[in-house]
Design a protein around this nucleic acid. Structure first.
Lengths: 145, 145
DNA sequence: GCTTGACCTGAAGTCAGGTTCAGGTGTTAT
DNA sequence: ATAACACCTGAACCTGACTTCAGGTCAAGC
């Protein structure tokens, strides 16, 4: 069993954040010893899952639901699995979005490299330059479709 | 030249958002016709860049700086390029983070699939199961390091 | 001439996810 | 016994990115 301060250290999260999570119901089965929170293995695992679900873009409210399901037992396995499947799809979509963003950024990097070499944007502004490298053209097409 | 309503349609952004962007200085060279905003080609391009930089996680304040550089002319090419390089690195980092999240989510999907088949978590909770598939083991190792 | 609709403004409100604050308790070290 | 800590609480505050609101202008159609 750990105190809030120890857990704060271990996870690199401010104490205030851990208390906030608790207030929001993210540790539904946490024990108290005369008022003081006792973080057990269940809470540590909860925190690992919280980090994962947060990283996947899930809201605190939804994470709370998940934690409640964990307390409810095996009858909620299917819901829990569905949640992770949904998150998986969301993260995959986000990665595709980021890939397009990345292509655009790469294009812009090339653009300013070229502008610096030319000393002006004029040639670039007018039209796609004749000497646009094939790889850059691909980035351009991906993002300016 | 387009009105704010037309641009709203074209970009799928609420009129209120466009006005907010303007207030935040994201269209430093926008013209007005007796009070009414006139969106020209510069503003359309600004919006495309805004979408890209926002998608890369940049704050509005920073986007405003970039737009000011664009007005300043060729002397700021290097800063603009540096900004895009920094964003590129940030997005790449974010994608690596998401990849780890995704591995964790895949592991959790497998976990609950197995729990549903077993009808209980008991076997899973104890230890890494003997029959943990190699592919899943990799996901597990990636995320539980 | 009056309503409708698209535009304008500044100020206030909203939401998530925390953080900070003021005041209180309980255990340990001097 | 008193100070120093780590813990506790509820309430207020903060930030970013918008949205909503109240009130006003102006051109076009009936």
């Amino acid at each position: 069993m750990y105190t809030i301060g120890q857990v704060s250290e271990m996870f690199g999260l401010p104490v205030s954040t851990l208390r906030y999570y608790d207030k929001e119901g993210l540790f539904p089965s946490m024990r108290r010893q005369s008022g003081i929170r006792q973080f057990g293995e269940a809470e540590m695992e909860a925190l690992r899952v919280i980090e994962c679900l947060k990283a996947s873009g899930l809201e605190i409210k939804e994470i709370k639901k998940f934690m409640a399901w964990c307390v409810e037992g095996p009858s909620t396995f299917a819901q829990r699995k569905a949640l992770f499947e949904t998150r998986k799809a969301a993260v995959e979509a986000e990665m595709r979005r980021l890939q397009k963003t990345l292509d655009m950024l790469k294009f812009k990097c090339w653009y300013y490299e070229t502008a610096i070499r030319d000393g002006s944007e004029d040639r670039l502004k007018e039209r796609i330059p004749d000497d646009l490298p094939a790889e850059i053209k691909k980035l351009y097409d991906n993002t300016h479709a």
